[in-house]
Design a protein around this nucleic acid. Structure first.
Lengths: 133, 133
DNA sequence: CTATATTCCTATTAAACCGATAGGAATAAT
DNA sequence: ATTATTCCTATCGGTTTAATAGGAATATAG
């Protein structure tokens, strides 16, 4: 229950790897080998991290990915959401109108609270915290 | 991300339904109709709740399920674990030895903390809280 | 004793999701 | 031109999940 996808775990390891490079470029292949992640699979993950603005990239020879933010400025929630989207214990968590049980749905408030608890934890830990242990 | 299965949502609604019955028996069909849950599917869910000791059951005519505990004594974590088992953001959360990254795995501590945050929230809310809003 | 209503158990299906792979287009350095 | 990279899309095999089906065991009612 509430298992974190391999994709998100890979993303976090890739980010900790990049964090150690202090702004230099690393190719997705290098990261994959360093972190034991399927190389081709990692490509798609790195792209998502880029779209989310968490890393920068350069194409062609000498290209790769690099960290543009300080690891202490990257919340773990940022990484998780970059890969998985917003955390939604139930689909109606954002919009009460969409709740199949109607506006009177009691469990919904409970799930909203759970989301807040999870978001809270993920937002109060940074990449720096995780990378340094 | 972190979506709660239909099974668990059904289980919670079934429990809130039973909570209103104040110890009287209700059949799984009655619960299913009251809560708009596929009847045959609910049977399996009720059985798990029984195995977990959260409800009592009687077979044959006049049979059904009934609540044996006070709703204020049932933690939401009990219901969730009855259906889904222990919460495990990552498989190595219980045993560091099993971690594919080895004992030096830094993210593991982070996931252990996440589990604690989720478990904490689920343990500090009871069925009574949810059923009454 | 029979008919009926229930829990209980196991198998099966259809769809969705997930991890991973494949094949290449676009781009940049050499 | 060659090479190394990001970028994009499609696909595959496996697993999980929601739901259904069919019936065995059990208890009540008549």
């Amino acid at each position: 229950m509430f298992t974190v996808s391999a994709k998100t775990q890979y993303a976090i390891r890739a980010m900790t790897c990049l964090a150690k490079m202090e702004g230099r470029y690393a190719t997705s292949l290098e990261i994959a080998q360093a972190e034991n992640i399927p190389a081709k699979y990692l490509e798609g993950i790195m792209r998502r991290l880029k779209v989310a603005g968490l890393v920068d990239s350069e194409r062609g020879k000498k290209g790769g990915y690099r960290m543009v933010l300080d690891p202490s400025a990257i919340k773990m929630l940022d990484i998780v959401e970059a890969i998985e989207g917003r955390i939604k214990p139930v689909t109606c968590v954002d919009k009460a109108e969409l709740c199949s049980m109607g506006a009177a749905c009691l469990p919904r408030r409970f799930w909203v609270g759970l989301k807040a608890a999870i978001d809270g934890y993920l937002a109060e830990h940074t990449l720096k915290d995780v990378a340094e242990g």
